[in-house]
């Protein structure tokens, strides 16, 4: 079961490439509806991505809407999977199974377009 998962990494290996200067915390929330192919894929993709780019600075919370339907209303979720970036501001939403890494990075503002 994909419960909320917290990943922490050694602080020594700081990424050099990303534009992000500030070592702020990333709060990510992945909304899924049951353990579908899509949601499993999205979770796997997200993990890989975060390990690569946000090592040690992120926190992923997975919310299964089937168990907490009212949360869909509060967070204005329509499509699943939806990744909500609560921190750093501004709040962003990225939908889909996160298989298009390029776009995810653009969406996370971790990489410039193009």
């Amino acid at each position: 079961m994909m419960a909320a998962k917290k990943t922490s990494s050694p602080r020594s290996r700081l990424p050099k490439k990303p534009v992000m200067q500030t070592p702020e915390k990333w709060e990510l929330r992945l909304y899924v509806a049951g353990q579908t192919q899509k949601s499993l894929r999205a979770f796997a993709n997200l993990n890989v991505l975060c390990e690569k780019h946000l090592q040690g600075r992120y926190r992923i919370e997975v919310i299964d809407l089937l168990e907490h339907p009212h949360l869909a209303r509060g967070a204005q979720i329509v499509a699943v999977p939806t990744l909500v970036v609560n921190l750093p501001e501004p709040v962003r939403k990225i939908i889909g199974d996160l298989s298009d890494t390029e776009r995810v990075l653009v969406g996370l503002a971790l990489q410039q377009v193009g």
């Binding site: 909304y31 809407l65 339907p69 990225i94 995810v104």
Partner: peptide, 24 residues
Amino acid sequence: HITRSEFAETGEYDLDGLFIRIAD
């Protein structure tokens, strides 16, 4: 309520979120 600017499509999705909201 959803704003286009918030979104980036990064692969397959479905409207289960909406389904769940309606069902609830």
